[in-house]
Design a protein around this nucleic acid. Sequence first.
DNA 1: GGGACCGTTCGGTGATCGTCGAAGAGTGCC
DNA 2: GGCACTCTTCGACGATCACCGAACGGTCCC
Lengths: 235, 235
Amino acid sequence: MTTRDPGAAGLARLAGLIADETRAVCLLALLDGRAWTAGELARHAGVAASTVSEHLGKLVAGGLLAEERQGRHRYVRLADARVAHLVEDLTAQVVPGAPRPASLAAAGTRSAMARGRTCYDHLAGRLGIAVTDALTARGLLRQDTGFALTDAGLAWFDTAGIPLARTGRRPLARACLDWTERRPHLAGVAGAALCRHALDAGWCVRVGSARAVRVTAAGRRALSESLGVEAAALA
Amino acid sequence: MTTRDPGAAGLARLAGLIADETRAVCLLALLDGRAWTAGELARHAGVAASTVSEHLGKLVAGGLLAEERQGRHRYVRLADARVAHLVEDLTAQVVPGAPRPASLAAAGTRSAMARGRTCYDHLAGRLGIAVTDALTARGLLRQDTGFALTDAGLAWFDTAGIPLARTGRRPLARACLDWTERRPHLAGVAGAALCRHALDAGWCVRVGSARAVRVTAAGRRALSESLGVEAAALA
DNA sequence: GGGACCGTTCGGTGATCGTCGAAGAGTGCC
DNA sequence: GGCACTCTTCGACGATCACCGAACGGTCCC
Protein backbone atom coordinates (compact mmCIF):
# COMPACT_ATOMS: atom_id res chain seq x y z
CA MET A 1 0.00 0.00 0.00
CA THR A 2 1.44 3.35 -0.96
CA THR A 3 -0.98 6.23 -0.43
CA ARG A 4 -4.46 4.99 0.33
CA ASP A 5 -6.86 7.89 0.19
CA PRO A 6 -7.72 8.67 3.84
CA GLY A 7 -11.36 9.08 2.92
CA ALA A 8 -11.74 5.50 1.79
CA ALA A 9 -12.67 4.08 5.18
CA GLY A 10 -15.32 6.73 5.70
CA LEU A 11 -16.67 6.27 2.21
CA ALA A 12 -16.99 2.52 2.72
CA ARG A 13 -18.62 3.01 6.11
CA LEU A 14 -21.18 5.45 4.69
CA ALA A 15 -22.01 3.20 1.76
CA GLY A 16 -22.23 0.27 4.15
CA LEU A 17 -25.07 2.00 5.96
CA ILE A 18 -27.12 1.93 2.75
CA ALA A 19 -25.88 -1.46 1.60
CA ASP A 20 -28.42 -3.49 3.57
CA GLU A 21 -31.79 -4.09 1.95
CA THR A 22 -33.79 -3.52 5.12
CA ARG A 23 -32.04 -0.24 5.78
CA ALA A 24 -32.57 0.71 2.13
CA VAL A 25 -36.30 0.05 2.53
CA CYS A 26 -36.35 2.37 5.52
CA LEU A 27 -34.45 5.12 3.73
CA LEU A 28 -36.74 4.95 0.71
CA ALA A 29 -39.81 5.07 2.94
CA LEU A 30 -38.41 8.09 4.77
CA LEU A 31 -37.92 9.79 1.44
CA ASP A 32 -41.45 11.11 1.81
CA GLY A 33 -39.95 13.69 4.15
CA ARG A 34 -42.12 12.73 7.10
CA ALA A 35 -41.19 11.19 10.44
CA TRP A 36 -41.92 7.48 10.94
CA THR A 37 -41.97 5.51 14.17
CA ALA A 38 -39.71 2.50 14.58
CA GLY A 39 -42.74 0.18 14.64
CA GLU A 40 -44.14 1.56 11.40
CA LEU A 41 -40.83 0.98 9.68
CA ALA A 42 -40.60 -2.55 11.09
CA ARG A 43 -44.04 -3.46 9.74
CA HIS A 44 -43.28 -1.76 6.45
CA ALA A 45 -40.03 -3.64 6.03
CA GLY A 46 -41.45 -6.92 7.27
CA VAL A 47 -38.85 -7.56 9.97
CA ALA A 48 -38.89 -7.87 13.75
CA ALA A 49 -39.03 -4.72 15.86
CA SER A 50 -35.69 -5.58 17.39
CA THR A 51 -34.09 -5.78 13.98
CA VAL A 52 -35.28 -2.37 12.87
CA SER A 53 -34.27 -0.91 16.20
CA GLU A 54 -30.67 -1.89 15.61
CA HIS A 55 -30.77 -0.58 12.06
CA LEU A 56 -32.12 2.78 13.16
CA GLY A 57 -29.39 3.00 15.76
CA LYS A 58 -26.76 2.61 13.08
CA LEU A 59 -28.39 5.06 10.71
CA VAL A 60 -28.70 7.70 13.42
CA ALA A 61 -25.11 7.14 14.57
CA GLY A 62 -24.02 7.46 10.94
CA GLY A 63 -25.72 10.83 10.60
CA LEU A 64 -28.20 9.77 7.96
CA LEU A 65 -31.22 9.94 10.25
CA ALA A 66 -32.37 12.37 12.93
CA GLU A 67 -34.43 11.04 15.79
CA GLU A 68 -36.94 12.56 18.14
CA ARG A 69 -38.31 10.71 21.16
CA GLN A 70 -41.86 11.37 22.20
CA GLY A 71 -43.13 9.27 25.06
CA ARG A 72 -42.82 5.64 24.15
CA HIS A 73 -42.40 6.44 20.45
CA ARG A 74 -39.18 6.95 18.55
CA TYR A 75 -39.67 9.11 15.50
CA VAL A 76 -36.98 9.14 12.82
CA ARG A 77 -36.65 11.19 9.67
CA LEU A 78 -33.90 11.86 7.13
CA ALA A 79 -31.27 14.10 8.69
CA ASP A 80 -31.47 16.80 6.02
CA ALA A 81 -32.02 17.50 2.35
CA ARG A 82 -28.50 16.40 1.50
CA VAL A 83 -29.15 12.88 2.68
CA ALA A 84 -32.38 12.81 0.67
CA HIS A 85 -30.44 14.04 -2.33
CA LEU A 86 -27.91 11.26 -1.85
CA VAL A 87 -30.52 8.51 -1.67
CA GLU A 88 -32.32 9.91 -4.70
CA ASP A 89 -29.09 10.05 -6.68
CA LEU A 90 -28.24 6.48 -5.83
CA THR A 91 -31.74 5.34 -6.73
CA ALA A 92 -31.59 7.15 -10.06
CA GLN A 93 -28.35 5.34 -10.82
CA VAL A 94 -30.00 1.99 -10.16
CA VAL A 95 -32.94 2.22 -12.55
CA PRO A 96 -31.30 1.14 -15.83
CA GLY A 97 -30.98 -2.25 -14.13
CA ALA A 98 -32.97 -5.29 -15.07
CA PRO A 99 -36.71 -4.61 -15.44
CA ARG A 100 -38.07 -6.73 -12.63
CA PRO A 101 -41.37 -8.58 -13.01
CA ALA A 102 -43.66 -6.40 -10.93
CA SER A 103 -46.81 -7.87 -9.45
CA LEU A 104 -50.15 -6.36 -10.37
CA ALA A 105 -50.42 -4.47 -7.10
CA ALA A 106 -46.86 -3.25 -7.38
CA ALA A 107 -47.53 -2.17 -10.96
CA GLY A 108 -50.50 -0.15 -9.75
CA THR A 109 -48.47 1.59 -7.10
CA ARG A 110 -45.67 2.04 -9.57
CA SER A 111 -47.95 3.70 -12.07
CA ALA A 112 -49.36 6.02 -9.41
CA MET A 113 -45.81 6.84 -8.34
CA ALA A 114 -44.87 7.59 -11.93
CA ARG A 115 -47.76 10.03 -12.32
CA GLY A 116 -46.92 12.16 -9.36
CA ARG A 117 -45.00 11.80 -6.12
CA THR A 118 -42.80 13.66 -3.75
CA CYS A 119 -39.03 13.41 -3.55
CA TYR A 120 -38.43 14.20 0.11
CA ASP A 121 -39.83 17.74 -0.04
CA HIS A 122 -40.40 18.55 -3.70
CA LEU A 123 -42.56 17.28 -6.55
CA ALA A 124 -41.37 14.47 -8.82
CA GLY A 125 -42.75 12.01 -11.35
CA ARG A 126 -44.63 13.20 -14.40
CA LEU A 127 -46.14 15.97 -12.27
CA GLY A 128 -42.73 17.26 -11.25
CA ILE A 129 -41.47 17.11 -14.83
CA ALA A 130 -44.56 18.92 -16.15
CA VAL A 131 -44.13 21.75 -13.67
CA THR A 132 -40.41 22.01 -14.36
CA ASP A 133 -41.00 22.05 -18.11
CA ALA A 134 -43.68 24.73 -17.75
CA LEU A 135 -41.35 26.90 -15.68
CA THR A 136 -38.67 26.51 -18.33
CA ALA A 137 -41.01 27.23 -21.25
CA ARG A 138 -42.10 30.47 -19.60
CA GLY A 139 -38.53 31.61 -19.09
CA LEU A 140 -38.72 31.30 -15.32
CA LEU A 141 -36.15 28.53 -15.08
CA ARG A 142 -33.00 28.17 -17.15
CA GLN A 143 -31.85 24.64 -17.97
CA ASP A 144 -29.75 25.14 -21.09
CA THR A 145 -26.65 26.46 -19.34
CA GLY A 146 -27.06 24.76 -15.99
CA PHE A 147 -30.02 24.88 -13.65
CA ALA A 148 -31.08 28.20 -12.14
CA LEU A 149 -34.08 30.46 -11.73
CA THR A 150 -34.11 33.58 -13.88
CA ASP A 151 -34.95 37.05 -12.60
CA ALA A 152 -38.41 36.52 -14.06
CA GLY A 153 -38.59 33.29 -12.08
CA LEU A 154 -37.77 35.06 -8.83
CA ALA A 155 -40.52 37.57 -9.60
CA TRP A 156 -43.02 34.78 -10.35
CA PHE A 157 -42.50 33.15 -6.95
CA ASP A 158 -42.85 36.56 -5.35
CA THR A 159 -46.15 37.47 -7.01
CA ALA A 160 -47.50 33.95 -6.50
CA GLY A 161 -47.03 34.48 -2.78
CA ILE A 162 -44.57 31.61 -2.41
CA PRO A 163 -41.72 32.74 -0.15
CA LEU A 164 -38.22 31.51 -0.89
CA ALA A 165 -36.33 31.39 2.38
CA ARG A 166 -32.60 31.45 1.67
CA THR A 167 -31.44 29.38 4.56
CA GLY A 168 -27.96 28.04 5.02
CA ARG A 169 -26.09 26.67 2.07
CA ARG A 170 -28.98 24.91 0.39
CA PRO A 171 -29.19 26.06 -3.24
CA LEU A 172 -32.26 27.94 -4.39
CA ALA A 173 -32.68 25.69 -7.41
CA ARG A 174 -31.16 22.30 -8.01
CA ALA A 175 -31.75 19.61 -10.61
CA CYS A 176 -32.92 16.26 -9.24
CA LEU A 177 -32.84 13.37 -11.69
CA ASP A 178 -36.16 11.56 -11.79
CA TRP A 179 -35.84 7.78 -11.69
CA THR A 180 -39.11 7.11 -13.51
CA GLU A 181 -38.93 9.86 -16.10
CA ARG A 182 -35.15 9.94 -16.51
CA ARG A 183 -35.25 13.73 -16.69
CA PRO A 184 -34.40 16.49 -14.22
CA HIS A 185 -37.02 18.23 -12.13
CA LEU A 186 -36.87 21.21 -9.80
CA ALA A 187 -35.45 20.61 -6.32
CA GLY A 188 -33.74 22.84 -3.78
CA VAL A 189 -35.38 25.64 -1.81
CA ALA A 190 -37.65 26.63 -4.71
CA GLY A 191 -38.75 23.04 -5.32
CA ALA A 192 -39.59 22.56 -1.66
CA ALA A 193 -41.51 25.84 -1.45
CA LEU A 194 -43.50 25.03 -4.56
CA CYS A 195 -44.39 21.57 -3.27
CA ARG A 196 -45.51 22.86 0.11
CA HIS A 197 -47.61 25.53 -1.59
CA ALA A 198 -49.19 22.91 -3.88
CA LEU A 199 -50.17 20.78 -0.88
CA ASP A 200 -51.32 23.73 1.24
CA ALA A 201 -53.39 25.23 -1.57
CA GLY A 202 -55.01 21.88 -2.36
CA TRP A 203 -53.45 21.61 -5.82
CA CYS A 204 -52.62 18.01 -4.99
CA VAL A 205 -53.18 15.56 -2.15
CA ARG A 206 -51.22 12.61 -0.83
CA VAL A 207 -52.47 9.16 -1.81
CA GLY A 208 -52.30 6.48 0.85
CA SER A 209 -49.23 6.30 3.00
CA ALA A 210 -46.72 6.23 0.17
CA ARG A 211 -45.06 9.12 -1.59
CA ALA A 212 -47.66 9.21 -4.38
CA VAL A 213 -49.72 12.39 -4.85
CA ARG A 214 -52.78 13.08 -7.00
CA VAL A 215 -53.58 16.38 -8.70
CA THR A 216 -57.04 17.74 -7.78
CA ALA A 217 -59.44 19.45 -10.17
CA ALA A 218 -58.62 22.76 -8.51
CA GLY A 219 -54.95 22.03 -8.90
CA ARG A 220 -55.40 21.31 -12.58
CA ARG A 221 -57.02 24.72 -13.03
CA ALA A 222 -54.42 26.54 -10.96
CA LEU A 223 -51.48 24.90 -12.71
CA SER A 224 -53.00 25.69 -16.09
CA GLU A 225 -53.68 29.32 -15.26
CA SER A 226 -50.47 30.20 -13.44
CA LEU A 227 -47.97 28.14 -15.41
CA GLY A 228 -49.73 26.94 -18.53
CA VAL A 229 -49.36 23.29 -17.59
CA GLU A 230 -51.51 21.27 -19.98
CA ALA A 231 -53.97 18.77 -18.52
CA ALA A 232 -52.57 16.12 -20.84
CA ALA A 233 -49.21 16.30 -19.08
CA LEU A 234 -50.88 15.27 -15.83
CA ALA A 235 -52.98 12.37 -17.13
CA MET B 1 -44.22 -6.29 4.87
CA THR B 2 -46.76 -4.19 3.05
CA THR B 3 -45.29 -2.34 0.09
CA ARG B 4 -41.52 -2.53 0.06
CA ASP B 5 -40.20 -0.12 -2.48
CA PRO B 6 -39.09 -2.26 -5.43
CA GLY B 7 -35.93 -0.23 -5.79
CA ALA B 8 -34.62 -1.19 -2.36
CA ALA B 9 -32.78 -4.30 -3.47
CA GLY B 10 -31.05 -2.44 -6.26
CA LEU B 11 -30.19 0.45 -3.99
CA ALA B 12 -28.64 -1.89 -1.43
CA ARG B 13 -26.73 -3.75 -4.12
CA LEU B 14 -25.30 -0.54 -5.56
CA ALA B 15 -24.28 0.77 -2.14
CA GLY B 16 -22.79 -2.62 -1.35
CA LEU B 17 -20.38 -2.21 -4.24
CA ILE B 18 -18.93 0.89 -2.57
CA ALA B 19 -19.23 -0.45 0.97
CA ASP B 20 -15.91 -2.28 0.95
CA GLU B 21 -12.82 -0.32 1.87
CA THR B 22 -10.62 -1.85 -0.80
CA ARG B 23 -13.19 -1.13 -3.49
CA ALA B 24 -13.55 2.39 -2.10
CA VAL B 25 -9.80 2.88 -2.41
CA CYS B 26 -10.01 1.83 -6.04
CA LEU B 27 -12.92 4.14 -6.80
CA LEU B 28 -11.18 7.11 -5.18
CA ALA B 29 -8.00 6.40 -7.12
CA LEU B 30 -9.96 6.18 -10.35
CA LEU B 31 -11.48 9.55 -9.57
CA ASP B 32 -8.52 11.09 -11.39
CA GLY B 33 -10.36 10.19 -14.59
CA ARG B 34 -7.57 8.05 -15.97
CA ALA B 35 -7.43 4.32 -16.64
CA TRP B 36 -5.51 2.14 -14.18
CA THR B 37 -4.33 -1.42 -14.62
CA ALA B 38 -5.43 -4.08 -12.18
CA GLY B 39 -1.89 -4.46 -10.90
CA GLU B 40 -1.51 -0.75 -10.20
CA LEU B 41 -4.70 -0.77 -8.19
CA ALA B 42 -3.60 -3.86 -6.27
CA ARG B 43 -0.32 -2.23 -5.27
CA HIS B 44 -2.08 1.03 -4.46
CA ALA B 45 -4.61 -0.70 -2.24
CA GLY B 46 -2.07 -3.02 -0.68
CA VAL B 47 -3.88 -6.27 -1.40
CA ALA B 48 -3.12 -9.37 -3.48
CA ALA B 49 -3.65 -9.23 -7.21
CA SER B 50 -6.25 -11.96 -6.97
CA THR B 51 -8.24 -9.92 -4.49
CA VAL B 52 -8.36 -6.81 -6.63
CA SER B 53 -9.25 -8.91 -9.63
CA GLU B 54 -12.41 -10.10 -7.94
CA HIS B 55 -13.27 -6.60 -6.82
CA LEU B 56 -12.88 -5.20 -10.32
CA GLY B 57 -15.11 -7.95 -11.66
CA LYS B 58 -17.87 -6.90 -9.30
CA LEU B 59 -17.47 -3.19 -10.03
CA VAL B 60 -17.57 -3.78 -13.78
CA ALA B 61 -20.59 -6.08 -13.48
CA GLY B 62 -22.28 -3.44 -11.36
CA GLY B 63 -21.78 -0.82 -14.03
CA LEU B 64 -19.54 1.44 -12.00
CA LEU B 65 -16.40 0.68 -14.00
CA ALA B 66 -15.67 0.28 -17.69
CA GLU B 67 -12.86 -2.03 -18.73
CA GLU B 68 -10.61 -2.24 -21.73
CA ARG B 69 -8.28 -5.15 -22.34
CA GLN B 70 -4.99 -4.48 -24.05
CA GLY B 71 -2.66 -7.41 -24.39
CA ARG B 72 -1.92 -8.76 -20.97
CA HIS B 73 -3.20 -5.62 -19.27
CA ARG B 74 -6.70 -4.90 -18.00
CA TYR B 75 -7.40 -1.21 -17.88
CA VAL B 76 -10.36 0.04 -15.85
CA ARG B 77 -11.81 3.50 -15.47
CA LEU B 78 -14.99 4.99 -14.01
CA ALA B 79 -17.91 4.18 -16.29
CA ASP B 80 -18.96 7.80 -16.79
CA ALA B 81 -19.25 11.22 -15.21
CA ARG B 82 -22.35 10.18 -13.29
CA VAL B 83 -20.45 7.54 -11.37
CA ALA B 84 -17.73 10.06 -10.59
CA HIS B 85 -20.39 12.49 -9.42
CA LEU B 86 -21.83 9.81 -7.15
CA VAL B 87 -18.51 8.98 -5.54
CA GLU B 88 -17.72 12.65 -5.06
CA ASP B 89 -21.10 13.27 -3.46
CA LEU B 90 -20.65 10.39 -1.06
CA THR B 91 -17.14 11.56 -0.19
CA ALA B 92 -18.37 15.09 0.47
CA GLN B 93 -20.96 13.70 2.85
CA VAL B 94 -18.27 11.84 4.79
CA VAL B 95 -15.92 14.73 5.61
CA PRO B 96 -17.56 16.15 8.75
CA GLY B 97 -16.53 12.86 10.35
CA ALA B 98 -13.87 12.56 13.01
CA PRO B 99 -10.62 14.37 12.15
CA ARG B 100 -8.24 11.46 11.87
CA PRO B 101 -4.61 11.77 12.99
CA ALA B 102 -2.84 12.05 9.65
CA SER B 103 0.80 11.10 9.38
CA LEU B 104 3.30 13.68 8.21
CA ALA B 105 3.45 12.28 4.71
CA ALA B 106 -0.31 12.04 4.51
CA ALA B 107 -0.58 15.62 5.73
CA GLY B 108 1.74 16.70 2.93
CA THR B 109 -0.33 14.96 0.31
CA ARG B 110 -3.47 16.26 1.93
CA SER B 111 -2.24 19.81 1.80
CA ALA B 112 -1.25 19.46 -1.85
CA MET B 113 -4.67 17.98 -2.58
CA ALA B 114 -6.34 20.89 -0.81
CA ARG B 115 -4.44 23.41 -2.91
CA GLY B 116 -5.46 22.02 -6.25
CA ARG B 117 -6.62 18.73 -7.66
CA THR B 118 -8.91 17.20 -10.21
CA CYS B 119 -12.34 15.74 -9.53
CA TYR B 120 -12.58 13.16 -12.29
CA ASP B 121 -12.40 15.66 -15.16
CA HIS B 122 -12.69 19.12 -13.63
CA LEU B 123 -10.70 21.32 -11.24
CA ALA B 124 -11.28 21.17 -7.49
CA GLY B 125 -9.62 22.18 -4.24
CA ARG B 126 -8.69 25.79 -3.63
CA LEU B 127 -7.81 26.14 -7.30
CA GLY B 128 -11.27 25.00 -8.39
CA ILE B 129 -12.94 27.29 -5.88
CA ALA B 130 -10.82 30.26 -6.95
CA VAL B 131 -11.73 29.78 -10.61
CA THR B 132 -15.41 29.30 -9.79
CA ASP B 133 -15.45 32.41 -7.62
CA ALA B 134 -13.71 34.43 -10.32
CA LEU B 135 -16.25 33.31 -12.91
CA THR B 136 -19.05 34.32 -10.57
CA ALA B 137 -17.53 37.69 -9.71
CA ARG B 138 -17.26 38.53 -13.40
CA GLY B 139 -20.90 37.67 -14.03
CA LEU B 140 -20.03 34.63 -16.14
CA LEU B 141 -21.56 32.14 -13.72
CA ARG B 142 -24.70 32.58 -11.68
CA GLN B 143 -24.82 30.90 -8.28
CA ASP B 144 -27.41 32.94 -6.41
CA THR B 145 -30.47 31.34 -8.02
CA GLY B 146 -29.05 27.92 -8.81
CA PHE B 147 -25.93 27.12 -10.82
CA ALA B 148 -25.75 28.09 -14.46
CA LEU B 149 -23.58 29.95 -16.96
CA THR B 150 -24.85 33.34 -18.04
CA ASP B 151 -24.95 34.50 -21.64
CA ALA B 152 -21.76 36.43 -20.90
CA GLY B 153 -20.30 33.17 -19.64
CA LEU B 154 -21.10 31.38 -22.87
CA ALA B 155 -19.43 34.20 -24.78
CA TRP B 156 -16.33 34.03 -22.56
CA PHE B 157 -15.78 30.33 -23.29
CA ASP B 158 -16.27 31.07 -26.98
CA THR B 159 -13.74 33.89 -27.17
CA ALA B 160 -11.29 31.98 -24.98
CA GLY B 161 -11.33 29.24 -27.58
CA ILE B 162 -12.67 26.62 -25.20
CA PRO B 163 -15.34 24.61 -27.02
CA LEU B 164 -18.36 23.41 -25.05
CA ALA B 165 -19.61 20.22 -26.67
CA ARG B 166 -23.23 19.68 -25.70
CA THR B 167 -23.21 15.95 -25.71
CA GLY B 168 -25.97 13.74 -24.39
CA ARG B 169 -27.75 14.66 -21.21
CA ARG B 170 -24.75 15.92 -19.28
CA PRO B 171 -25.48 19.41 -17.95
CA LEU B 172 -23.37 22.29 -19.21
CA ALA B 173 -22.74 23.54 -15.68
CA ARG B 174 -23.19 21.67 -12.43
CA ALA B 175 -22.20 22.39 -8.85
CA CYS B 176 -19.85 19.84 -7.29
CA LEU B 177 -19.40 20.14 -3.55
CA ASP B 178 -15.74 20.26 -2.59
CA TRP B 179 -14.82 18.01 0.32
CA THR B 180 -11.83 20.05 1.41
CA GLU B 181 -13.25 23.52 0.91
CA ARG B 182 -16.88 22.72 1.72
CA ARG B 183 -18.00 24.94 -1.12
CA PRO B 184 -19.29 24.27 -4.65
CA HIS B 185 -17.06 24.43 -7.69
CA LEU B 186 -17.77 24.22 -11.40
CA ALA B 187 -18.39 20.75 -12.84
CA GLY B 188 -20.29 19.48 -15.86
CA VAL B 189 -19.32 20.01 -19.50
CA ALA B 190 -17.95 23.51 -18.84
CA GLY B 191 -15.90 22.34 -15.86
CA ALA B 192 -14.39 19.50 -17.87
CA ALA B 193 -13.59 21.74 -20.84
CA LEU B 194 -11.95 24.34 -18.63
CA CYS B 195 -9.84 21.70 -16.87
CA ARG B 196 -8.67 20.14 -20.12
CA HIS B 197 -7.79 23.57 -21.47
CA ALA B 198 -5.85 24.39 -18.30
CA LEU B 199 -3.80 21.21 -18.63
CA ASP B 200 -3.31 21.55 -22.39
CA ALA B 201 -2.26 25.18 -22.16
CA GLY B 202 0.16 24.46 -19.32
CA TRP B 203 -1.73 26.51 -16.76
CA CYS B 204 -1.25 23.63 -14.37
CA VAL B 205 0.47 20.25 -14.29
CA ARG B 206 -0.25 17.00 -12.50
CA VAL B 207 1.85 16.23 -9.44
CA GLY B 208 2.96 12.66 -8.97
CA SER B 209 0.46 9.95 -9.64
CA ALA B 210 -2.30 11.32 -7.44
CA ARG B 211 -5.03 13.76 -8.35
CA ALA B 212 -3.07 16.77 -7.13
CA VAL B 213 -2.20 19.53 -9.62
CA ARG B 214 0.13 22.52 -9.33
CA VAL B 215 -0.40 25.90 -10.97
CA THR B 216 2.54 27.01 -13.12
CA ALA B 217 3.88 30.55 -13.36
CA ALA B 218 2.34 30.85 -16.82
CA GLY B 219 -0.95 29.59 -15.42
CA ARG B 220 -0.86 32.19 -12.70
CA ARG B 221 -0.47 34.92 -15.32
CA ALA B 222 -3.15 33.51 -17.59
CA LEU B 223 -5.67 33.06 -14.77
CA SER B 224 -5.01 36.58 -13.56
CA GLU B 225 -5.39 38.13 -17.00
CA SER B 226 -8.39 36.22 -18.28
CA LEU B 227 -10.39 35.83 -15.08
CA GLY B 228 -8.85 38.13 -12.53
CA VAL B 229 -7.90 35.28 -10.22
CA GLU B 230 -5.64 36.68 -7.53
CA ALA B 231 -2.33 34.96 -6.87
CA ALA B 232 -3.17 34.84 -3.17
CA ALA B 233 -6.08 32.53 -3.85
CA LEU B 234 -3.69 29.97 -5.31
CA ALA B 235 -1.04 30.06 -2.60
C1' DG C 1 11.10 -21.44 -27.83
C1' DG C 2 12.20 -19.94 -23.17
C1' DG C 3 11.35 -16.81 -19.61
C1' DA C 4 9.34 -12.86 -17.38
C1' DC C 5 5.15 -10.63 -16.51
C1' DC C 6 0.00 -9.84 -15.94
C1' DG C 7 -4.20 -11.40 -14.75
C1' DT C 8 -7.78 -15.05 -13.35
C1' DT C 9 -9.73 -19.06 -11.04
C1' DC C 10 -10.33 -21.89 -7.09
C1' DG C 11 -10.44 -23.82 -2.38
C1' DG C 12 -10.05 -22.66 2.30
C1' DT C 13 -10.20 -19.60 6.31
C1' DG C 14 -11.70 -16.17 9.40
C1' DA C 15 -14.42 -12.37 10.54
C1' DT C 16 -18.34 -9.62 10.10
C1' DC C 17 -23.15 -8.91 10.06
C1' DG C 18 -28.25 -9.41 9.71
C1' DT C 19 -31.74 -11.93 11.83
C1' DC C 20 -34.73 -13.64 15.44
C1' DG C 21 -36.93 -14.55 20.08
C1' DA C 22 -36.89 -13.78 24.86
C1' DA C 23 -36.41 -10.78 28.55
C1' DG C 24 -36.55 -6.23 30.36
C1' DA C 25 -37.05 -1.00 30.76
C1' DG C 26 -39.91 2.88 30.05
C1' DT C 27 -44.47 5.14 28.91
C1' DG C 28 -49.45 5.90 28.67
C1' DC C 29 -54.16 4.68 29.80
C1' DC C 30 -57.94 2.95 32.53
C1' DG D 1 -51.99 -0.28 40.70
C1' DG D 2 -52.32 -2.97 36.74
C1' DC D 3 -52.37 -3.73 31.93
C1' DA D 4 -51.20 -2.79 27.14
C1' DC D 5 -48.00 -0.97 24.21
C1' DT D 6 -43.34 0.59 22.24
C1' DC D 7 -38.85 0.06 22.01
C1' DT D 8 -34.17 -1.82 23.45
C1' DT D 9 -30.69 -5.21 24.86
C1' DC D 10 -28.71 -9.66 24.65
C1' DG D 11 -27.25 -14.27 23.13
C1' DA D 12 -27.25 -17.43 19.44
C1' DC D 13 -27.52 -18.95 14.80
C1' DG D 14 -26.54 -18.80 9.92
C1' DA D 15 -25.02 -16.75 5.82
C1' DT D 16 -22.24 -13.80 3.40
C1' DC D 17 -17.92 -12.01 2.08
C1' DA D 18 -13.08 -10.31 1.80
C1' DC D 19 -8.75 -12.23 1.81
C1' DC D 20 -4.80 -15.10 0.56
C1' DG D 21 -1.71 -18.51 -1.86
C1' DA D 22 -1.16 -21.74 -5.36
C1' DA D 23 -1.95 -23.19 -9.87
C1' DC D 24 -3.04 -21.99 -14.53
C1' DG D 25 -3.78 -19.54 -19.12
C1' DG D 26 -2.27 -15.45 -22.01
C1' DT D 27 0.80 -12.05 -23.75
C1' DC D 28 5.08 -9.81 -24.77
C1' DC D 29 10.09 -9.77 -25.40
C1' DC D 30 14.73 -11.48 -26.00
